[in-house]
Design a protein around this nucleic acid. Structure first.
Length: 551
RNA sequence: GCGCCCGUAGCUCAGCUGGAUAGAGCGUCGGACUUCUAAUCCGAGGGUCGGGGGUUCGAGUCCCUCCGGGCGCGCCA
């Protein structure tokens, strides 16, 4: 990446300056570069001289560095500005090379190797299998997919994982709720538990169960009936969830069941590992995890007084499972309402000898607006907006894109009515339109018998219009944007980038006619079109949004 | 009460380890279709970055404090 190369040049200059006794010590490596807001400040700028100044004169240091900068064909000019910024203007040769790479399929444009050799598990959605996937999970799916894609784009080997909470109290309550509806269907007086599931879909599940098993369980012992119906209910619900996620474009590689963790003996193994580490204690008849010794604010129960393990016990077992599968890093995408559980998860990872290898990305709530009405997704309350409904109303592309426009820290306000109208305020259409428009130009060129551009040799030096320059420079920033978005776990950077790219393309389209009587200029502009199309498509691909060729 | 997150244009939000004159979209107002897609484009207006103090050559960004909002603080998940 260009920033890395310029950093190295400046570091070399600093080494020389140290050798010459001009500065006492080199700056922190790598030297940080940023893209100045203002065009006249060059392509890249660094404030190293200011950070190194101490009591000294930052401008003098900057000048000393610039004087010692090794020559490079990437750099056109370097200046010292303001209080001591070093501004770098990159050479056209470099810029044209970027455009050619962007226009070349399989050139790896936008890919980097920061994560090479790293195996990462990204767990996301992991909604309780007690009802249809709702809109909140939709945000998790969109963000999880994008994070996974970003990690892959930066060289990580990624496994996408879904944790099925089929072993806890909620699964039991759900089973009991379906059981009650099942009995009602057969004329038996039964009631859905007060704290059970009251949504209409529960009856639908019960009907499906009844179709499968008839009245076989009406007169069986309650224990047997409940377990059988619970298992069937979970089976159908998981099918629904899987189907909804697939429709949304989300595919998990691994669906791991909580009950399977127990069955595989991993819970016992986890408890043993914690005990070996001297981090468990019996107190009041329960078994505790002494997590407060590892940064949690209090200890936590692992096994209740009645002998049933807690949810945390499963969580620890799952950590044993995941680390046992060889992951270097575990990423959890969780709702912000789970932030209280983060310290205990981190404590558990540390207790298992994997301190610092677990990372939690917290997503703030989704607030749904349907017209004037504001509602929140809650499965238990029965007021739910299902992901399927949203996808049907606004489309998977628009829904995904909306979910990815905000940082994780920001609550997301999703106005269904507005999105449903497919009004132009939805930026996904803007971006997709730019892509379709480029495709249209390329089709037109082919129809007119214009030869396809020879990307490697097209005379890009002919691209001198300011909007051509701006578009090329935007393309050139893509690799840094992807790397930064991955590093910061911030997919919303991609939506911002691609909107800006689409905007730059529109300006180019406005100012420059692509297909003209000038074969060289036409070839250069077609190359720029190809590069832009490929980059929009690649970026949308990372976001899980389609790039249509016609609209 | 304690902990985490948030407070930036009328609205929804960006602002990368502190950098140079705080941005985008929408909305509002005014313009542009004999031209490769007008699902578009151009222009205008709009801000004490919640308040106050501090650190720094430099603060929307870091620290303290106050105000306002969200979430969490179970042998629930």
């Amino acid at each position: 990446m260009i920033t890395d190369e310029i950093s190295r040049l400046i570091e070399e200059a600093a080494r020389r300056a140290v050798a010459d006794g001009v500065i006492p010590a080199p700056p922190r490596s790598p030297v940080h570069l940023e893209r100045p807001r203002r065009r006249e400040h060059g392509d890249l700028a660094t404030n190293v001289a200011l950070t190194m100044a101490g009591g000294g004169n930052p401008r003098a240091i900057a000048e000393a560095l610039v004087e010692r900068l090794p020559p490079s064909e990437l750099v056109q000019s370097v200046t010292v500005a303001g209080p001591g910024f070093i501004n770098v203007k990159l050479s056209p040769v470099w810029l044209h090379d970027v455009v050619r790479r962007a226009a070349t399929p399989d050139a790896g444009f936008g890919r980097s190797a920061a994560g090479r050799g790293q195996r990462v598990n990204v767990e996301y959605v992991s909604a309780n299998p007690t009802g249809p996937i709702n809109v909140v999970s939709g945000r998790h799916a969109a963000v999880g997919d994008a994070l996974a894609a970003l990690l892959e784009a930066t060289g990580h080997e990624v496994t996408r994982e879904f944790y099925v909470n089929d072993g806890g109290r909620q699964a039991e309550l759900y089973g009991a709720s379906v059981e009650a509806r099942y009995l009602q269907l057969h004329g038996v007086d039964a009631e859905v538990p007060e704290d059970g599931y009251h949504g209409d879909y529960v009856m639908e599940v019960a009907r499906w169960v009844a179709e499968r098993v008839g009245d076989r369980y009406v007169n069986t012992p309650p224990q047997e009936r409940r377990e059988a119906i619970r298992d069937l209910a979970l089976e159908l619900t998981l099918q629904w969830m899987r189907a909804s996620l697939e429709r949304f474009g989300t595919h998990h590689d691994v669906w791991r069941s909580e009950r399977a963790l127990h069955a595989d003996g991993l819970v016992d193994k986890a408890l043993a590992r914690l005990a070996e580490a001297g981090l468990t204690a019996e107190r009041d008849g329960a078994l505790w995890f002494l997590s407060s010794r590892l940064g949690d604010d209090k200890d936590r129960v692992l096994v209740r007084r009645d002998g049933r393990p807690t949810y945390l016990a499963s969580d620890v077992a799952y950590l044993v499972d995941k680390f046992g599968r060889g992951f270097d890093r575990l990423v959890y995408v969780l709702g912000a309402d789970h932030h209280g559980t983060v310290p205990r998860l981190e404590a558990a990872a540390a207790a298992l000898g994997h301190e610092g290898r677990l990372e939690v990305e917290l997503l703030q709530v989704v607030t749904l607006k349907r017209g004037a009405e504001t509602l929140k997704g809650s499965k238990r309350a029965g007021v739910v907006v299902e992901l399927d409904d949203l996808v049907e109303e606004v489309g998977a592309d628009a829904a995904r894109y909306m979910f990815l426009t905000r940082s994780a820290d920001a609550p997301l306000e999703f106005d269904i009515e507005l999105a449903k109208e497919q009004a132009p305020e939805n930026p996904v259409y803007y971006v997709q339109y730019a892509h379709a428009r480029i495709c249209s130009i390329l089709r037109r060129a082919a129809d007119d018998g214009v030869p396809p551009p020879r990307v490697a040799s097209a005379p890009l030096e002919r691209l001198t219009d300011p909007s051509e320059d701006a578009l090329m420079r935007r393309l050139a920033s893509y690799e840094e944007v992807v790397a930064a978005a991955a590093r910061q776990r911030a997919p919303h950077r991609l939506t911002r980038f691609v909107e800006e790219l689409a905007g730059d393309f529109s300006a180019f389209y406005r100012d420059c006619r692509v297909i003209s009587e000038d074969p060289g200029l036409t070839e250069a502009r077609l190359t720029l079109c190809v590069a832009t199309r490929a980059t929009i498509a690649d970026c949308l691909g990372l976001l899980g949004v389609s790039a249509p060729e016609r609209m």
